[in-house]
Amino acid sequence: MLTYEPDETIAHRLDPRSKLAVQMGFAATALAHTSPRALLALSVVAALLLAAARVPLWRTLVAYRFALVILAIAPIVAAVTLGAPWIDVGDGLASARASYRVLLVLLVSAAYVRSTPVRHSRAAIQRTIPGKPGQLLGIGVALVFRFLPVLRADLRTIQDAMAARLGTERSAVERASTIGVLGLERAFDRADRLSLALQARCFAWNPTLPALSFGRLDYPAIAIAIVLALSAFL
């Protein structure tokens, strides 16, 4: 699971708002361009962003393994037709290019997650979007970043417990239903405990968030974000 890791990389020293701008600009131009030359250029940009945050590529691909399976199956499904010629290569290639663009966006988002603390992400969102909408969105992002790894750990615990009790010899449907039911029970239990913990800590809509300020490295990052966003219209 990808999480924030303290480091001294260029990405870690950037303001989270500039990193969000770069990420949004990259996503906009990645979804707008489908040519092989554009995908090659986007691949180079994504590689530079990953290097700026020192993101381990193999570990990132392992963390995204379930999404990768879906992205790999999509071109095959798109290429299959119900009649002659049965395989449409054009549709398959178009879907493959779309899957590759989504993969690039996921890799860039991994660079953001690894280089940005959860509280900084919340501060960036709340100070960019004013009022209650920004506070609600900031809280939601913070809870997802903290809550999702716990739920994934619970699912791994359930799978390990089933394997220790020879649960692997059951049918796939029975295993999936057992994991689903127990996973939901754990999720609701975690939600109740989270609610109680928030009440015990006098949860506030507008807590004291870390101070954010743009540095010298942020201005080139903002310029890159603007160039990426404008390139979507070319």
Rank of each mutant, 00 (worst) to 15 (best):
L2P: 08
L2D: 02
E5G: 01
T9N: 02
T9L: 14
A11N: 04
H12C: 00
H12W: 15
L14R: 03
D15C: 06
D15L: 06
D15P: 03
S18A: 07
K19M: 06
G25L: 04
G25W: 07
A32D: 03
H33G: 06
H33L: 14
H33W: 14
P36L: 12
A38K: 10
A38M: 14
L40V: 13
A46G: 08
A46Q: 04
A47F: 13
A47M: 11
A51E: 07
A51C: 12
A53R: 09
R54N: 12
V55T: 15
P56E: 12
L57E: 11
T60W: 01
L61C: 09
Y64F: 15
R65I: 03
L68G: 08
L68T: 06
V77M: 11
A79S: 10
A79T: 05
A79F: 06
A84L: 09
P85K: 05
W86G: 08
V89W: 12
A94S: 11
A94H: 10
A98W: 12
Y100S: 09
R101K: 08
R101P: 02
V105L: 12
L106P: 01
L107T: 02
S109A: 15
A110L: 01
A110T: 06
A110I: 05
A111K: 00
A111N: 02
S115I: 07
V118R: 10
V118P: 01
R119C: 05
I125C: 01
I125S: 02
R127S: 15
T128M: 04
P130L: 06
K132P: 03
P133N: 06
P133M: 10
Q135E: 14
L137P: 02
G138N: 02
G138M: 05
G138F: 00
I139M: 06
I139E: 14
G140D: 12
L143I: 08
F145D: 11
A153L: 10
D154W: 01
D154Q: 07
L155F: 03
R156Q: 11
Q159G: 09
D160F: 01
G167C: 03
G167R: 00
S171G: 15
S171R: 04
S171E: 11
A172Y: 14
A172E: 15
V173R: 13
R175W: 01
A176M: 13
T178D: 05
T178P: 04
I179K: 08
G180C: 09
D189I: 01
D189K: 02
R190M: 03
D192R: 12
D192M: 08
D192V: 06
L194R: 04
L194I: 01
S195K: 09
S195V: 09
L196Y: 05
A197W: 00
A200L: 11
C202Q: 13
N206I: 02
P207D: 15
L209A: 07
P210I: 00
S213V: 00
P220Q: 09
A221P: 01
I222V: 05
I222A: 05
A223G: 11
A225D: 01
A225E: 00
V227T: 12
A229T: 15
A229F: 15
L230G: 07
L230V: 10
L230M: 05
S231Y: 07
A232L: 05
F233K: 10
F233I: 09
L234T: 10
L234H: 12
L234C: 08
